[in-house]
Design a binder for these strands. Structure first.
Length: 550
DNA sequence: CGCTTTTGACCCGCGC
DNA sequence: GCGCGGGTCAAAAGCG
């Protein structure tokens, strides 16, 4: 009897404990729900505030444009923006240079002009004009006034307007250059002469290039843009030919990229971007454009402050893209991952290199770069977390209790479940380890690559630190993403990345998360996300809205 | 048929 | 001035 009583009491105790734990979990769930509700409310609030800002800016821009439209002929740009409101425009870094000045001076040289074919000349004019900068003017402003930061920009929409005006002015040249009317050509030249005056004091360097090293089996990485191959050349010292691509999203887009295999490790694809998109980008292309824009902005901002195009370590400087999409988050990420980014100068081209092949970079989840529409036969979908080490300090938030509807769809096949933090952590860690084990250690290859000397140094210096960070990254990834100040944009970027990939890859998606070479859905901090200042929240809301509604 | 890729020729900058 | 190498052009071929 006593045994039975004690047994029943034990059962009761177990039940009580279960009930207690269940209640505790319920309480946690409620807390998480409350937190998420607050986040959601904050997003809505930010979105509304940004909407107001945008309408204000549109009003003021309209008024300024109407005053300048007769001389600038920028109708096409406005029309284009109006026609494609769902598109966003990001600028890839480029460099205002005296090289252009030289060439431009040739245009005014009748002897030179007479010797050139007219069509060629007009084409060259067009191309060179389009290779103007997206961020230079803004960086100049930063140089002149170091207090100009993202927060100040958001506080003072006037600054942002100025940037947009600069971009508009730039686009005016781009769009009008497509017109072969002689009069417009003259306008272009004259406007360039004005720019030349501004650039007289610029260092004699060429356009900034953003070089991305990633492991990729396919001929080229899928970055969301459409490219047309226009040339191929065997570069010296590399048995693999270098392919030249031109952006075909817009017939006048000056952006070009070079793709070549690393001579020391054929699994590494080196993609170099150059130029500024003069058209709205598809959402699926914003990820790459954001990364390159942020990297270019970083190198440029640093170069402007140091008066040299070469830097050994990125220096953080909060800035924004010319259309107000912010690079601060990625720049922060780059700063937090010194092995990820390095800068150098090749052929007078300031080049910033994003090395996504480093297993200990703490940034192994740039897998969207290596995802490819070419590998559709081995589709898989898995989620990686881009989390900068800095994120580990963030408080926790568990998505398992998220009331966000998107969480459900993520779990259904495309995203890792957030139900178990430990499992998530192990999943992410395994994913990372798989990535690492898939390839050989690239460190031996980097020794032979000038571009990566800085990477190596930084990597060596920070390897132990990053190793430990990596161990914790996976564990804190879900927490970090949730309460990361960039969470909204991270979410938005993931959705856009997924949507873009899905649109570009119509084949079925399996749930195999470990399959090599598969298409991946990746969360990553984007320039669209903002720094931690509350003043920046408005853009976060808009970005999240844009992507979610898509 | 239209678009993309290939590929040899050409241009141009840079170093010697 | 010359040669080298990177980058681009443009006609031809390929492809769907």
């Amino acid at each position: 009897m006593e045994a039975e009583l004690s047994g029943s009491s034990i059962c009761n105790n177990d039940q009580e404990e279960l009930l207690k734990s269940a209640k505790e979990k319920m309480g946690e769930v409620k807390e998480e729900n409350q937190r998420l509700k607050k986040v959601l409310a904050q997003i809505v609030k930010e979105y509304q505030s940004l909407e107001k800002q945008i309408s204000l800016m549109a009003h003021s821009k309209q008024s300024t444009d109407t005053t300048n439209s007769s001389s600038n002929n920028n109708h096409e740009e406005q029309d284009d923006e109006n026609q494609e409101p769902e598109m966003v425009s990001l600028t890839l870094g480029s460099w205002s240079c005296n090289t252009n000045n030289k060439k431009h001076s040739n245009y005014d040289n009748p002897k030179k002009q007479a010797s050139d074919d007219n069509n060629k000349l007009s084409k060259r004019r067009k191309v060179e004009g389009e290779l103007d900068l997206g961020l230079d003017d803004y960086c100049k402003k930063i140089q002149q006034n170091p207090t100009v930061t993202t927060s100040s920009i958001n506080q003072n929409t006037l600054n942002l307007e100025n940037v947009n005006k600069d971009q508009s002015k730039e686009n005016i040249e781009i769009w009008t250059s497509n017109n072969r009317d002689l009069k417009e050509k003259e306008n272009i030249v004259s406007s360039r002469e004005g720019d030349d005056q501004d650039n007289l004091h610029q260092p004699q360097v060429k356009k900034t290039r953003v070089c991305i090293r990633s492991r990729c089996d396919s001929p080229t990485i899928h970055d969301g843009c459409h490219w047309r191959k226009y040339g191929q050349k065997v570069a010296k010292g590399n048995p693999c030919p270098r392919a030249y691509y031109r952006c075909t999203v817009s017939p006048t887009c000056p952006v070009r990229k070079q793709v070549q295999r690393c001579p020391h490790d054929m699994s590494i694809l080196i993609t170099t971007y150059e130029g500024t998109h003069n058209h709205p980008l598809p959402l699926s292309a914003t990820g790459m454009a954001s990364a390159t824009s942020a990297a270019a902005a970083m190198i440029k901002s640093n170069s402007l402050t140091s008066q040299t195009p070469t830097l050994t370590r990125p220096v953080g400087l909060t800035t924004s893209s010319s259309l107000g999409l912010h690079t601060s988050s990625l720049m922060t990420t780059f700063n937090n991952n010194p092995s990820l980014i390095s800068a150098s100068s090749h052929n007078s081209h300031p080049t910033v290199t994003l090395d996504l092949t480093l297993p200990n970079s703490g940034f192994t989840s740039f897998d969207w770069l290596s995802s490819s529409s070419y590998s559709s036969s081995r589709n898989s979908s898995f989620l990686n977390f881009s989390s900068s080490p800095a994120s580990s300090s963030l408080p926790s938030l568990d998505f398992s209790t998220s009331s966000l509807p998107t969480t459900t769809s993520w779990v259904n096949g495309y995203l890792l479940p957030y139900n178990d933090r430990n499992n998530n952590a192990s999943s992410v860690t395994n994913s990372t380890n798989n990535t690492n084990s898939m390839y050989q250690n690239p460190s031996s290859n980097n020794n032979n690559n000038n571009n990566n000397n800085n990477n190596n140094n930084n990597n060596n210096n920070n390897s132990s630190q990053q190793q430990s960070l990596n161990e914790t990254i996976a564990a804190v990834a879900t927490k970090a993403i949730a309460l990361n100040p960039n969470f909204q944009s991270v979410l938005a970027a993931a959705i856009s990345s997924y949507v873009g990939n899905k649109a570009n890859n119509k084949t079925n998606v399996s749930n195999d998360q470990s399959e090599e070479g598969g298409r991946s859905l990746t969360l990553f901090p984007t320039p669209m996300s903002l720094s931690t200042t509350s003043n920046n929240n408005a853009s976060v809301a808009t970005d999240a809205r844009d992507h979610i509604t898509d």
